[in-house]
Design a protein around this nucleic acid. Structure first.
Lengths: 287, 287
DNA sequence: CCTCAGCATACGGTCGTCCCGAACGCCCCA
DNA sequence: TGGGGCGTTCGGGACGACCGTATGCTGAGG
């Protein structure tokens, strides 16, 4: 009855805690729900502690369960590190990023990492924000690069899963631009899930006329054609500003100032509880 | 084939690495040798690495095996710490000491520990030096308090197991004493395994006449009776020196100096590889 | 009010792992 | 040339990790 905790049990436990349901965890682990349920029961027996409150909607962590979740991933990471050290396998780090960033800002971060830690293999995955946050919470990617603002994740206007931590590793300046002599009133915006669009919604009143386009690059093209003004990231428009194809325009507010500094944070996000395993990597990516 | 490493395997592995033989590890673990052998085989299969060279005399670690031994105990300690944190069990620390020290110098160390770390339960075991070193190497005790000298374990004249580390947490001065007016030539000594006796052997030439007695306290009593001189630890004779029952005498060398400073180290010994789990405790015991 | 969907879990059964005792092959030493 | 110590193999028993299925629970919706 008082047997040792095994790593397999912890792996299942973490999956259930993250999914919130036995069924969901079973899907992730590619097991039958009955098997997952039995593992949890044995883990609770072995520890002599109740880890979950069973509700009709799923499994909610108890206080001891919360304490275990805080530590389980760290122990699993420790075990992985031991295995790598013994087998001589290289360590593989998976980093995800928004598509826009993957093409523009991610390369510099990955290059830094490759230079400072040649012992790592780096994988890159480009996902949208929702997938990105879910992947980092599930441990599918080790860290994610996205755009945000403020002192907590989601300030830009989205709802992240719990248990994430972050570090800002750079800035992306937003520039309000239009074609010289073109329409400087209509706001050309990207879809609602886009980070830049979220920044637009935080900066402009709702009654400013908008025209929604399918992507940032489309909005830029329309702006080039004189069909409106658009708030765009520095890396997308600096070439146009230099060549004169686009020019900066002032935002439409009485006092002539933007409602917020038009600078977003290039934010590196990871799952809390994996700090011990990731600290060196995060440092190499950011410093 | 590429199965996960389980903690149970590591526990067996550590036992085999320490014992040097499957049979010995089986005795420690209270298993049949066949079971231990199978566990090692599965662990090697799972890692895809050979951990031991099989010799007719036993099991010798390979390079990967050595790398694993360095890390396995740390991982097991980590798992124990997680289990304690979740179950709310208090942490139990077992410290061993030589009998002489257990009665005299250990209490101060344990009191320091109890004051600084009231969250710990401290167990004390008194053993002779051989048992003590074996116990700390086997993880039966977490740390051991003994007497030694010099910059490495065993300088006093014994052979410790490999893989131990130490910290000196105090000093024990040795005093050469005799009764006033008594025999100041015959050396009253304790048995050969005794730390004090080892110090004697390092300090006095072999032709100095010795009389061997069964213990330090017996030697002291004989000295009190004027039957010889004896090299004794401060805590054993300071009361006699104060009352005049015994007096300090000079060592028998031409230049009138001792062949070595008569001070032994109060040495705290632990198994390397358990540093991560014990660091805080060792610090609390020593600092 | 009742049904249905979604949840966790209990049940019966298969397979792999953990354990045993016994037998075997190896090497060393008397 | 045996005997003792070693690790390993073998056959078998117990148990845990899985599966598919069945059951009981609760909240939403007709």
């Amino acid at each position: 009855m008082l047997r040792r905790v095994e790593l397999r049990h912890l792996q299942v436990f973490v999956a259930v805690a993250r999914a919130g349901t036995v069924t969901g965890a079973a899907n992730v682990l590619e097991l039958a729900p009955a098997s997952v349920s039995e593992q949890i029961r044995r883990l609770e027996d072995g520890l002599g502690v109740t880890l979950f409150d069973r509700t009709p909607r799923g499994m909610r962590l108890t206080a001891p369960g919360d304490a275990l979740l805080e530590r389980a991933q760290g122990l699993l990471d420790h075990a992985d590190e031991v295995r790598r050290a013994v087998t001589g396998q290289r360590r593989r780090v998976t980093v995800g990023a928004l598509e826009t960033l993957a093409a523009t800002r991610l390369p510099a971060v990955v290059r830094r990492l490759a230079e400072r830690r040649p012992d790592l293999d780096v994988d890159v995955r480009t996902l949208n924000r929702g997938e990105l946050l879910a992947a980092v919470a599930d441990g599918e990617v080790d860290a994610a690069l996205l755009l945000d603002a403020g002192m907590r994740i989601g300030t830009l206007g989205f709802s992240p899963p719990a248990g994430l931590d972050f570090l800002d590793v750079g800035e992306v300046a937003l520039r309000l631009v239009a074609a010289p002599g073109g329409d400087a009133r209509t706001l050309l915006v990207s879809p609602p899930e886009c980070s830049i669009r979220m920044a637009v919604e935080r900066m402009f009143a709702a009654d400013v006329p908008r025209r929604e386009l399918t992507s940032i690059s489309t909005a830029r093209e329309w702006a080039r054609q004189g069909l409106g003004r658009s708030l765009l990231p520095d890396f997308a428009v600096d070439a146009d500003l230099a060549s004169g194809t686009l020019v900066s325009v002032a935002p439409a507010r009485p006092d002539g100032r933007l409602s917020q500094a038009p600078v977003l944070a290039l934010r590196l996000v990871w799952a809390r509880g994996r700090e011990a395993a990731l600290r060196d990597v995060l440092y190499a990516m950011s410093g």
